[in-house]
């Protein structure tokens, strides 16, 4: 049976979709059959981030309307044979709300996958509740900014009212150079403020914008970070990406200085 994990956040634009797609691709590369489902019906982008927008025939709304079976709408990602995407391309035209039947649809996928990642809409509206109701676990994506953390705290308080097996935080867009100088919140400070466990740290890097999910360059920092995150999620480990690496000491101060002046 699949582990159903909702990827959520309070604030929009923190990287939920990118994390759902890249985490899905990484889990798949580790041999786990993974499905990433786009439940962000209003502002769907999972198909684009995963680089499968040209392969869409059916989508989630077609499944929910009975026009096709879920397996017909699944798209195998070019990144890995174990990674599938269930997009919601046409959902916006048919209504922005996430229907309650989504839970049944996800349950139907349980036997075919090891992981079902649900890309949730931002905020705590109806779509959020439907997506969370269909999940067993939650990952809350935050960035190291007060507005994101404030909204995440509200989402975490709502998530506590659900009987989820686990709720973790993924800190996205961490800039090591600013974190070591104390100019942005560190993941440790975020963990303390939100009173929830950080399960992953993703560094800010251009490759996240330039590459489709599953195609991050081997030496790109986010590639290593997703590798660690996938291991933490799949095996319950708590190893963290070293965001401060290269930014401490004498040479680190030079590197910070160069990065600030670019």
């Amino acid at each position: 049976m699949a582990r159903k994990i909702v990827i959520t956040s309070g604030k929009g634009g923190v990287g939920k979709t990118a994390i759902a797609a890249n985490l899905g691709a990484r889990l798949a590369k580790n041999g786990k059959r993974t499905c990433a489902l786009d439940a962000d019906f209003g502002l769907n982008n999972l198909d684009v981030v995963a680089g499968v927008e040209n392969l869409v025939v059916y989508d989630v709304s077609d499944c929910l309307e009975g026009k096709c079976r879920a397996k017909q709408a699944l798209i195998q990602s070019p990144a890995d044979k174990n990674f599938y995407v269930l997009p919601s391309v046409n959902a916006f035209l048919k209504g922005k709300t996430v229907p309650d039947e989504l839970g049944s649809l996800i349950s139907g996928l349980e036997t075919s996958f090891d992981f079902v990642l649900i890309d949730c809409p931002a905020g705590v509206g109806g779509g959020f509740h439907t997506a969370v109701s269909a999940a067993d676990e939650a990952l809350v994506v935050v960035t190291p900014h007060i507005s994101s953390l404030r909204d995440a705290d509200k989402v975490l308080s709502v998530l506590r009212s659900y009987s989820l097996k686990s709720v973790g935080i993924i800190v996205n867009r961490v800039r090591g150079d600013l974190a070591v100088t104390g100019d942005v919140f560190t993941p440790e400070q975020i963990e303390t403020a939100l009173k929830a466990e950080v399960v992953g740290i993703i560094p800010e890097d251009d490759s996240m914008f330039l590459c489709n999910a599953g195609f991050l360059p081997y030496d790109a920092p986010p590639n290593k970070a997703f590798k660690i995150l996938a291991s933490n999620v799949a095996e319950g480990k708590r190893k963290m990406y070293d965001y401060a690496s290269g930014y401490t000491g004498f040479f680190g101060s030079i590197r910070r200085s160069i990065k600030r002046n670019i």
Binding site: P144, I146, L149, R150, D153, K154, S157, G182, D183, V184, F185, T186, Q189, A193, L194
Partner: peptide
């Protein structure tokens, strides 16, 4: 994070939680 911003975050979150 600079201490005043950490305090600011704590204050914002505490106020919201109340």
């Amino acid at each position: 994070m600079k201490r005043d911003n950490v305090i600011r975050l704590k204050r914002v979150i505490d106020t919201d939680r109340l």
